[in-house]
Amino acid sequence: MKRKFNWIDYCIILFVLAVMVVLGLKIKNISSVNLSGDNEMNKIKKDVILLIHDVRKYSVDALQVGDNVYSDDTNYYFGKIKKIEVEDSYVPLANNKGEGILARSPEKYDIILTVECNVLDRPNGVFAEGITEIKVNSTGKYKTIGLLFSAITKNIQDIGE
């Protein structure tokens, strides 16, 4: 008895083909960055300056120079911490005269991280390791072996600037 395809069979085939296409595109996007010789040649080392604002001393103590930084959004390697600067944190406050002032945020600090990254310069943006997009003034979530943190990108500069 010859089995005829019905509409359910066609739906299943289409669904499986769609899943394969989506997966294939995802793999192609990632591997074209990692495997393509041309893209490797375009990666240059840059210092990305990240600001972690208004955090307690626990966060300061959890970071070390040399720690690897990963993007918490993409889970890919972002760069290596080259320098850590710590400053007292100040936050805006209106006093009773209606004046805006910067008040010391008690027991909190700003951490300025210099992260050395391999940066790929594409027409539509700048990407660390060709994967994680970097934009000045944007906030991202990052992680090291010791700390999970949010940081604002303050600058992307040439090494030694």
Binding site: L93, I101, A103, R104, P106, E107
Partner: peptide, 13 residues
Amino acid sequence: EEFENMEKGIIEL
């Protein structure tokens, strides 16, 4: 907790 002391212009715990 943080308390904004607007008279002195500081934040206190």
